[in-house]
């Protein structure tokens, strides 16, 4: 076990965990931010997507020891009041079925919109390819991203 300082959603967290612990499990088990989900553990499903220094990253494959000085944003910190345009658009398009993958989907989409504020369908399909929705809400996800752009 070792001590690490993490900057998550604008707050400093001191954690004592083994150095190889993936960020995912530090967020969930140690800090108690459970919005970031476990789906595969090998960066294939996107359920654990967070932002590290603004870039979308699969937190299941990011050891805590590699995060010194980095800024981490999770779904809980994407907006102050749950009012990020994507969070509102997701509700307007009534995207979720089971809802489990959606935090990861929103984090991937938020990173896309930062890079490309008005993506085409094809841009969306490429950017969202790393996120699996087992319920098949893909068309509504695409619709919600377009809605968020329109504002």
């Amino acid at each position: 076990m070792a001590n690490f300082t993490l900057q998550v959603n604008g707050e400093q967290h001191q954690v004592t965990v083994s150095a190889d612990t993936p960020l995912l499990w530090v967020l969930r088990d140690t800090i108690g931010l459970v919005g970031t989900k476990y789906g595969c553990g090998i960066a294939q499903c996107g359920a654990c997507t967070v932002h590290i220094d603004g870039n979308p990253v699969r937190s299941c494959s990011m050891p805590v020891s590699s995060l010194k000085g980095k800024t981490i944003t999770t779904i809980e910190g994407l907006s102050n009041n749950g009012d990020h345009p994507l969070q509102l658009a997701w509700q307007e398009a009534d995207v979720p079925q089971c809802g489990y993958c959606q935090a990861g989907q929103i984090m991937s989409a938020a990173a896309l919109l930062k890079e490309n504020p008005n993506p085409s369908d094809e841009d969306i399909d490429i950017a969202m390819r790393g996120n699996i929705c087992r319920c098949g809400t893909y068309n509504r996800i695409r619709k919600a991203i377009h809605l968020a752009v329109k504002g």
Binding site: R28, V34, I75, G82, Q87, P96, G99, Y100
Partner: peptide, 21 residues
């Protein structure tokens, strides 16, 4: 009427079995 849990889902609130602590 949209999914009643949407507000909690899109903000990452604990809802699922895996979230139990």
């Amino acid at each position: 009427h949209p999914n009643i849990d949407n507000p909690a889902i899109v903000t990452g609130k604990p809802l699922f079995g895996i979230d139990i602590q």
